[in-house]
Design a protein around this nucleic acid. Sequence first.
DNA 1: TAACAAAAATAGGCGAGGCTAACAATGTCT
DNA 2: AGACATTGTTAGCCTCGCCTATTTTTGTTA
Lengths: 166, 166
Amino acid sequence: MSNLSARSEDYLKAIFKLQEEKKVVRVKDLAQCLGVRSPTVVGVISGLKESGLVDQEHYGYISLTPEGDTLARSLIQNEDLLRSFFEEVLSLDTEEAGLNACNIEHYITPTCRERLVSFIKFLEICGRGSPKWLDHFRHFVLTGEPPPCDRCGEILPGDGKRCEKD
Amino acid sequence: MSNLSARSEDYLKAIFKLQEEKKVVRVKDLAQCLGVRSPTVVGVISGLKESGLVDQEHYGYISLTPEGDTLARSLIQNEDLLRSFFEEVLSLDTEEAGLNACNIEHYITPTCRERLVSFIKFLEICGRGSPKWLDHFRHFVLTGEPPPCDRCGEILPGDGKRCEKD
DNA sequence: TAACAAAAATAGGCGAGGCTAACAATGTCT
DNA sequence: AGACATTGTTAGCCTCGCCTATTTTTGTTA
């Protein structure tokens, strides 16, 4: 695939994001964004320049090449996907969802990513973003109370009726 | 927390697993298990010895200290949890589920892990391992066909009945 | 017991990604 | 235009996790 280290991918994504919000990306911004010192940025960027993913003139601004841009977009798309899984399914708050997404994005296999895509698509189809069972899960996470029926979406034993919330 | 690098955690887990299956762990076994050469193992192990997680006499077998054992167990428990999520929820095959679990285990936050635990517990409570919606999801993954009802577990619009499979 | 095979350890090197300190270029402001 | 602050670069060092080549120890076997 991209053959980049996890860390280089982080740099690429950060450049893309900074470009969106500030129009222009400087070493200093990148350093702050990634929690690192300037010389570290210079070092990593120089590798990305050699890989043809980043452009920068001496003492100038940093930008993505078309290839770098394409790659960054796809990395961010994957990250966003993961974040929405963590946020919407597991009910993590946005910040923590983003943190997990960013950390994990480098390490999941393509099939795993596809399955998560499927999972989210499934949610959208099945209840426009929030099927009953997911509401039940959220309730379970918050309160520890078991879901209101024995088998989500199935006839309750005993009275032969479905539970009300279902 | 444990303050170990991801790679050191891998070594610790590998020692634990080899100890279970072979009773005795040698540098050579560990090297093979981790896809690495002996001197690399010697180097990493020497760090783990200094951290008090591993015991080894000169030219002798490798074993976990009580602290190392405790840590390894908890790491493996987390990994197993992730694997079962990937396998049971996302329907990845065992090998790929294990690969993803092993890679990701180092990077998720505690809360995220807890949520996954909750998710799996929820599944167990809600349908003894496989609620209807999960069957629907698996079907969706395999065939691309949308779930049989508009809103899993809810009355279908139109005829006022639930779909048959639900 | 001496010789040899197998395994572990050491020596020394490499690249990635960090750091600090020092230096060079740029931009701004009077 | 000159002075100074800001920012980028270079130099040089560190740790980690990997490697190959070599040496040391251990274990086996004639």
